[in-house]
Nucleic acid binder design. Structure first.
Lengths: 348, 348
DNA sequence: CTGAAAGCGCTTACAG
DNA sequence: CTGAAAGCGCTTACAG
């Protein structure tokens, strides 16, 4: 008097889900053979393969990941770890954009994404503990500040890891995917020069982040190439927040009232710059041209809409996932730098 | 010649992590006793408890969740499932806010959050399959549109579930946590009336969402209470996006050029309304008062800053997690309605 | 190509 | 209060 079926089979069945054993029975093979089919079908006769697949369909079998994990040591999941202060993260559309795209990309591989936010020290410890305990197979790390201990810890623990953005600590050989910040900045500033601007200011990101440093370097490159003088009065630093862009623009207007363009290292900060400019009675782009960076939703939401440098977030996420999965499969850490693109709108 | 220690013990150790067996050996007890300590310490002598805890510290033991899951049938994780079209989700700060807060709240319970986005039919199927296969213990569901099949499917599969916002399908007895939309809308409109406004328009959310329906009802309540006539020309509908707010405001200005206030069912739409008003040359709040809803980052980013109705997202997330965990532990689904609060800024 | 069997690390009745 | 043992559902050498 045993269960005869496979006819209900819904995996959601809160009763007893079919196991590999049920499939084996229905298919008339051993459990080992079922497992082989599940894992790529090597060393399985066409007939057995067919029978097993039919049995899987019939029973509605879904693998028990916990059981699999216990023997393979792999969880089949990946962490998306954020180490920035929480508030900023979610105000900045870049982050949520990246999160969304990585989730979708991983879904294609049937790999769930665990969202981890290490805003406080306590959260950081908790997350590290979880990760290093082997509960995830790898980490997509969103962290850019110099001296973030997380990268080193993860690296030391031997956890497969890929960063979004270049690591500030060049010595660490960690996999990463980034847009070509320096080249993007060069393009924007060259464009401003070619539009006839001569007093071009910049609002940089924090100078302990690659986006802060490299976009500033690109700005300098193009100024030099155009034979324009370097003037420190034209350089102000923000923290990627909208508010910091506003503050930076106020400083710039005071130090260099004759500026006729501003290259801003992020679209969100550029929104702040736009606000400050408007308050100061400067018209954009007539009096002052404003160039952003990111091509995030903030760029189209701004008024005037921002001329900006597009970071290919879709490709960035796809590459991050690809590089991470390769590492999980034993490849060496890889670095991928993706080209940017100038997007012309109304602000410059 | 066997491993003697417990002295390295780092869980991140890619070698062999200490198991319950190691802890038992070090503590001089059986594995069953260690397990009992791990699971609350019932039926364990103080001495044994002490010894086990010491051994855990010494070995750096961390439970293997996969092994535990296999026997308990619980994964120890929870899904955060979004069933709205992706783009909207991440443009709207409410969603990312909620995501962030739920993640933090769950972290307090050591429960990882799996982010699932069901934008396409394919993604929906994939996620449902994962969830109903028992890979998560419960679901935090962010979905508001009427006729979303996910709620019913989850309910039928017997998966513990809590929705953010009232379910549109009243027949379904599903747990949910929501702000008091109707009352919040009443408060805002009453405030507008008390400020002397008489031609008060509204931009509603989609009328197949509770936020659309209930905030409109609250608007009507307060108009009636004030003895103001109901005028359908004063009602326009948006889809919660900024752009839709802009469009709705244009319609309203055309149909009722004499309007002196607009109650907008979300801050993001209110931003759009502000833009349309500015273009039409109406001063806010002098000519037209604008009231928002949510008190999201969009409210403070708007110019003028929005007077709005605060949804207590921190409490909402905390309650969602609490109600979900209670259900996982066998409680019946509960509904929690939280009060809102009027936040005065510059737009009204 | 295939089956029988060991083993992954836990929890939980069951005796005592 | 505690230990010995079964069992959760898989994968993977190992024989054949």
């Amino acid at each position: 008097m045993t269960r005869t079926d496979g006819h209900t089979g819904r995996a959601g069945d809160r009763r007893r889900a079919p196991t590999i054993h049920d499939v084996a029975r229905v298919a008339g093979v051993s459990r080992g053979t079922v497992s082989r089919v599940l894992n790529g079908g090597q060393n399985v006769s066409p007939a057995a393969l067919e029978a097993v697949n039919a049995a899987i369909r019939k029973t509605g079998y879904v693998v028990n990941r916990a059981a699999r994990q216990m023997v393979t040591g792999r969880s089949g999941s990946v962490a998306f770890l954020l180490t920035e202060p929480q508030e900023r993260l979610f105000d900045d559309p870049n982050f949520s954009n990246l999160l969304r795209l990585c989730t979708a990309e991983l879904a294609l591989h049937d790999i769930p994404l665990l969202l981890m936010i290490a805003g406080t020290e306590d959260e950081r410890r908790r997350n590290m503990r979880y990760i290093t305990a082997g509960h995830v197979d790898g980490v997509l790390l969103i962290s850019s500040h110099f001296g973030d201990p997380v990268t080193a810890e993860l690296k030391k623990a031997g956890v497969p890891l890929v960063m979004c953005g270049k690591p500030m600590d060049h010595s660490a050989k960690v996999a990463h995917v980034a847009a070509d910040d320096r080249d993007g900045a060069r393009d924007m500033v060259r464009y401003l020069v070619e539009s006839g601007r001569r007093r071009i200011a910049t609002v940089t990101g924090p100078l302990d982040t690659p986006g802060g440093v490299d976009r500033l370097a690109g700005y300098r490159d193009s100024l030099t190439a155009a034979g324009l003088p370097a003037d420190e009065a034209l350089i102000a630093t923000g923290d990627y927040s909208r508010r910091s862009g506003e503050l930076a623009a106020e400083q710039l207007l005071e130090r260099a009232p004759d500026l006729d363009a501003v290259f801003v290292a992020s679209d969100l900060m550029a929104q702040g710059v736009l606000a400050a400019l408007e308050r100061a009675g400067r018209r954009v782009p007539q009096d002052v041209a404003v160039g952003g960076f990111d091509d995030s939703p903030a760029a189209t939401a701004a008024r005037p809409a921002l001329t900006t440098i597009r970071q290919p977030y879709d490709r960035i996420s796809a590459e991050m996932v690809r590089v991470l999965l390769a590492q999980i499969d034993g490849d060496d850490p890889a670095a991928v730098i993706l080209p940017t693109e100038l997007v012309r709108r109304d602000s410059a």
